[in-house]
């Protein structure tokens, strides 16, 4: 029998579905999910993503309404339009999930991430790092004679760009919070 020739990646969504997903465009979406703040709820959401083979680019979670015990999970995910629709429907049917909002399609939204960068170096590199930090409006939150820790808030792209510039200047460690996002305007 001839070897199985199965296109790589063609079964990423479901083993039974040999549609070619490369033919479709991969989109990036930011979802805001309001959930009951109960034990294990994050595990349910993450388990759903891993169990069904969906991507997580970033994920943040915290309680946002103490009185009603609601937490907000912000997930940045990628997939074809069909997969994104599936993700929303699947997340929506988790019992403690109250609402799922696709901020990417529901209108303009703001996304912010916080990052900490440790940059080691002396001499010109150190001066250059400090200069760039100023341009990017990063704050120095810790400093020794050989190092800085910069704190920066911004879009993920801005943080990526800053990290790229710091790399040759002695970037040794990075911590990022992942994306928090809200729809613009007065409505909720």
């Amino acid at each position: 029998m001839s070897a199985l020739r199965i296109q790589q990646g063609s079964t990423s969504h479901s083993a039974y579905d040999l549609r070619d997903y490369h033919a479709e465009v991969i989109e990036k979406h930011t979802l805001a999910v309001l959930v009951d703040n109960e034990a294990g709820v994050l595990a349910r959401v993450i388990g759903l993503f891993s169990g069904r083979g969906y991507n997580i680019e970033s994920l943040t979670v915290a309680e946002v309404n103490h009185d009603s015990h609601l937490s907000r999970i912000t997930v940045v995910t990628t997939g074809t339009r069909d997969v994104i629709e599936q993700i929303k429907a699947q997340v929506g049917r988790i019992v403690p999930v109250h609402e799922v909002h696709d901020l990417t399609v529901e209108g303009p939204s703001i996304e912010r991430e916080l990052a900490l960068f440790k940059v080691e170096g002396t001499g010109n590199n150190r001066i250059e790092a400090l200069r760039l930090a100023e341009i990017f409006r990063a704050n120095v939150v810790d400093s020794t004679l050989e190092s800085f820790v910069f704190e920066m808030t911004g879009t993920s792209e801005k943080i990526d760009a800053f990290a790229e510039l710091m790399r040759p200047l002695g970037l040794v460690e990075t911590a990022r919070t992942g994306v928090a996002a809200l729809a613009r305007g007065s409505h909720v």
């Binding site: 579905d17 599936q86 429907a89 049917r93």
Partner: peptide, 11 residues
Amino acid sequence: IDPSSINKIIR
């Protein structure tokens, strides 16, 4: 009754 069944496999 389950919206996640819609377009999951067949559009």
